[in-house]
Nucleic acid binder design. Structure first.
Length: 229
DNA sequence: AATCGAAACAACCGCCAGTAA
DNA sequence: CTTACTGGCGGTTGTTTCGAT
């Protein structure tokens, strides 16, 4: 009995730290068999000594098919900047507008570049010369493994208002403010956009009460965009 | 070549909301 | 109605890599 309890306790001691390729394989195989979700049962079904949370995080941030890796494009940077101005640290919400990018990636990017430093435009030149070789290399391997096995699932959330067909072109079923956002930011030079906004003091129009978790006043946004873009 | 600080990234932690029992 | 469980999210930390000196 005591031995049994000890065994059970031991069973719940999850492994931590960096994931090994073998663990990744286990998780990929699990998702292939059971689909996403039911993370708490991964350990039981796959033999992984990882918590459900850990498995979900690994899958979402690293193993999931369709993930883009490597440096963010100027367009993506612009999207992040603008949406952060609109919604604050709603990383998962922002990530929905950047197909293939994760909330974690965006969060890290923001913290590294903008949190306690100058404007994005000041950091742009610096950013251009930074390349993540290690990550690209690893991701390339992962993609080669998975491209043959997975179909990128359609994003369908009842209250998420968009379906991406290609990353930076077609968006469907967006709200008015989002459509303005799409028109104004997609393809625009980030540095010039930032300069415009910061010089004109436009940030004030984006300020609203973050606690109520609502979109900013659309008419205000519409006004600011129509007058500046 | 060695060292050190900054940047980049992966992963963990705590909290919260939704939901099933 | 209450409670426990689960998944998701944002904040934070630890490690690795890069670049300057």
């Amino acid at each position: 009995m005591v031995a049994m309890m000890e065994w059970r306790m031991h069973e719940k001691e999850w492994r931590k730290g960096p994931w090994t390729p073998a663990e990744d394989d286990f998780l990929i195989e699990y998702v292939r068999m059971h689909g996403e979700g039911r993370w708490s049962s991964v350990a039981d079904c796959s033999g992984l000594k990882r918590s459900g949370k850990s498995c979900r995080l690994r899958w979402v941030n690293y193993l999931r098919p369709g993930l883009k890796k490597g440096q963010l494009t100027p367009q993506e940077e612009g999207i992040i900047i603008e949406l952060h101005a609109l919604w604050g640290n709603k990383w998962s919400t922002i990530a929905r507008y950047l197909p293939g990018r994760t909330d974690n990636e965006i969060k890290n990017y923001w913290r590294t570049n903008f949190k306690k430093k100058g404007t994005p435009s000041q950091n742009q030149e610096k950013q251009k010369h930074k390349v993540s070789f290690r990550r690209d290399q690893h991701h390339h391997q992962q993609q080669q493994i998975m491209n043959n096995n997975y179909v990128l699932p359609q994003v369908e959330e009842s209250n998420q208002r968009m379906i991406f067909e290609s990353p930076e072109t077609k968006m469907e079923d967006t709200t008015v403010s989002e459509q303005h956002y799409n028109r104004s930011v997609m393809g625009q030079d980030v540095a010039s956009w930032w300069d415009t906004v910061s010089e004109d003091g436009l940030w004030s129009v984006f300020l609203w009460n973050l606690d109520n978790d609502q979109y900013p006043n659309e008419s205000v946004i519409e006004q600011s965009f129509s007058s500046n873009f």
